[in-house]
């Protein structure tokens, strides 16, 4: 059986939705409460890493493959850059061109919310990609060592 014991799997199944929604909450309310794109993205990535640990690599890669992790990583960075560039077209580099409403509202900050989302996607994908790289690469190296031992 791949992954960890039944207990861990059940707890993970119960917790995973909470972890993801908290990550999204931290990201979306980043401009109003403590937190932001980076913290939210890390939580999302931790959720996926927990999934990997509990259910094995296959399940997690089914949710987000290494190709998509790498692509999302770049897309997040590209989105952030594009928002800065849209501001540039609107007059100044990083210009906050969206409409700003009353303070303490969710859409009160113009481009900051979109920037936070872009950062969250970037951090989520890249931290998970780093984790994948370490685990896959680790297995590759240990495979090399074991073949050397056999020789």
């Amino acid at each position: 059986m791949e992954g960890m014991t039944f207990i861990v799997k059940t707890i993970t199944r119960l917790l995973i939705a909470v972890i993801f929604s908290f990550g999204i909450y931290i990201t979306v309310y980043g401009h109003l409460t403590p937190g932001g794109g980076f913290a939210g993205g890390i939580m999302l990535a931790c959720g996926l890493i927990l999934l990997t640990l509990a259910f094995g690599k296959k399940t997690a890669l089914g949710k987000l493959s290494d190709f998509w992790a790498s692509l999302l990583d770049n897309l997040g960075a590209f989105t952030f850059w594009s928002i800065a560039m849209l501001g540039y077209v609107g007059g100044y580099f990083f210009f906050n061109f969206l409409e700003k409403s009353d303070p303490f509202q969710i859409f009160s900050s113009g481009t900051v919310l979109v920037n936070n989302l872009a950062i969250a996607i970037k951090v989520f994908a890249s931290i998970f990609a780093v984790f994948l790289a370490l685990t896959i690469f680790g297995r590759f190296v240990s495979g090399l060592i074991s073949t050397e031992d056999e020789e």
């Binding site: 790498s70 590209f78 850059w81």
Partner: peptide, 21 residues
């Protein structure tokens, strides 16, 4: 002026997206 920083920074990520396809 910002294009001195923006152009290479943006191209670094555009490059990685495009070369996937």
């Amino acid at each position: 002026l910002p294009l001195f920083v923006m152009a290479p920074l943006g191209m670094a990520f555009i490059n990685l997206i495009l070369t996937k396809f």
